[in-house]
Computed example of a mutant assay.
Amino acid sequence: MSEEIIIAGFGGQGVLSMGKILAYSGIMQDQEVSWMPSYGPEMRGGTANVTVILSDERISSPYLKVYDTAIILNQQSMDKFENTVKPDGILLYDPNGITHHPTRKDIKIYQIEGAKLAAEMDNKKIFNMIVLGAFLKIKPIVKLENVIKGLKKSLSERYHHLIPLNKEAIDTGMKHLKKFNIEKHIIHN
């Protein structure tokens, strides 16, 4: 098993920490892991992305041009990464702020309204965990107990009291995932 993932959005959306939690979760499962962040100098509000590779075998290079999965959290990232998803791969995105929805018919496309759900849960900081939950519903490549261990490893100990809220956010993402229908979207727009 090998999963090559790009997570992309604005700095401040938890893109890098989502990737770090996935990477730690893979380590907890004795997988080979690569976590390679990329972000602009402005960080919060600028674009950020992270490549995560989880594999049962050695990883030859962390540098990728195509991905099994793209998790997209803003329009700039959609424009840049939609075409980097391998045929039959997965694109998961939050429609908030997206003006040009994906159009490829050779990949599976899903939506999660993470920003809206985080606002409903009255905590915008759990947005990334909602999105992570949606991804894990599609591809349960790491066990939930290892995600919780990954959270403990990546969060400062003073924030460990928020782990139950993060678990609730993951569960919310799993429950609210939607398959995106391109034809239906084109007809309505």
Results as ranks from 00 to 15, higher is better:
1 M>D: 11
6 I>C: 05
7 I>R: 07
14 G>W: 03
17 S>H: 04
18 M>P: 03
22 L>A: 05
22 L>P: 04
22 L>V: 09
24 Y>E: 04
26 G>M: 08
26 G>K: 04
26 G>H: 10
27 I>P: 02
29 Q>P: 08
30 D>P: 06
31 Q>I: 06
33 V>F: 14
34 S>V: 05
34 S>N: 05
35 W>K: 03
37 P>V: 00
41 P>N: 13
43 M>P: 00
44 R>Q: 07
45 G>F: 12
46 G>K: 08
46 G>M: 03
46 G>D: 08
46 G>E: 04
48 A>N: 08
48 A>C: 03
50 V>W: 02
54 L>P: 03
54 L>G: 07
56 D>T: 11
57 E>S: 12
58 R>G: 11
58 R>H: 06
58 R>Q: 10
62 P>R: 13
64 L>P: 00
64 L>R: 12
65 K>F: 04
65 K>N: 10
67 Y>T: 00
68 D>S: 02
70 A>R: 02
70 A>G: 04
71 I>P: 00
72 I>V: 07
74 N>T: 04
75 Q>D: 10
76 Q>L: 06
82 E>H: 01
84 T>C: 12
85 V>C: 00
86 K>Y: 00
86 K>A: 00
88 D>A: 09
92 L>G: 01
94 D>H: 02
95 P>D: 09
96 N>P: 02
97 G>M: 02
98 I>R: 07
101 H>F: 15
102 P>N: 15
103 T>S: 15
103 T>W: 06
105 K>Y: 08
107 I>N: 06
109 I>L: 03
109 I>Y: 07
110 Y>V: 00
110 Y>C: 00
114 G>A: 14
115 A>I: 01
115 A>T: 15
119 A>V: 06
123 N>R: 05
125 K>V: 11
126 I>H: 05
129 M>I: 09
129 M>H: 09
130 I>A: 01
135 F>S: 00
136 L>K: 03
136 L>G: 00
136 L>S: 01
137 K>H: 09
138 I>G: 07
143 K>H: 10
146 N>T: 03
152 K>T: 14
152 K>S: 08
156 S>N: 14
158 R>A: 06
158 R>I: 05
159 Y>F: 11
161 H>V: 11
161 H>I: 10
161 H>W: 04
163 I>R: 10
164 P>H: 13
165 L>A: 15
165 L>W: 15
166 N>L: 00
168 E>M: 14
169 A>E: 11
172 T>D: 04
172 T>H: 11
175 K>C: 05
177 L>H: 13
179 K>S: 09
180 F>C: 11
181 N>I: 15
182 I>L: 12
183 E>R: 13
187 I>M: 14
189 N>Q: 13
